[in-house]
Amino acid sequence: MTALVVGASAGVGRALSEALAANRKPLLLAASDPEDLNALAAHLRLVYGATVVTVAADARDPEAFAERLSAVAAEIDDIDELYFPIGFSRRDDKAQLDADASLAILNSNLTVVAAVTARFLPSLLRQPKARIVGFGSIAALRGRKANVIYSAAKRGLESYFESLRHFAAGTGVVVQLYRLGYIETQQSFGQRLLFPVVTPEQVARHVLATEGRDFGVRFFPRFWQLIALAVVWLPWRIYKKLNF
């Protein structure tokens, strides 16, 4: 059985791919850049002896992306785990992006996840045990003036995973969404952040350690749960004055 990692080439996706390879899990890795994918695949094969197949495709075109993936997947072992550490944001995402730019963010964070899941869900439901893992963001807790479209996409992703979990209830498919706090990636690099960052490797270890647990949604790191409570319940008259 093979694990599919969508958005595998950097950050959490790369760390997750490495952790899965270290666990001897055959991998189907997807990302936009063939050079990044080839480097990662070579490393995983040489260092871990992993079986790795790659697909380079553009997530901004979800239908074509899903089509390419399912064509390649048809040639290999059955998929029983889907991981979506995919995400795309822009620092100028401040409520003034045009339709194309907005759609690129929505497609890369949400639509492509739905499109790929739709392709693989029938076979996952036939498995005695399977897993679909999404990665949300604390940016989705409450709308704010930065990361406007990105936050909307991530909140949409939460709703999508809630529905998916409901749909898969009673089957062997476990649906999990990790709401990630600050992660040491390009998104957070060089920013002054209020709370500690964790490494992609820590995220990957946590995801693998919580396999099979039907918790629905979980914060990582867990302390974000308390911060989330404070953010959500903060009165509007105070919230609107925050510059973040």
Binding site: S9, A10, G11, R14, D33, E35, D36, A39, T185, Q186, F189, G190
Partner: peptide, 12 residues
């Protein structure tokens, strides 16, 4: 200044 690229498109 420090920059920490993580994808090959940076070098290309």
């Amino acid at each position: 200044y420090l920059q920490q690229p993580d994808r090959y498109r940076f070098w290309r």
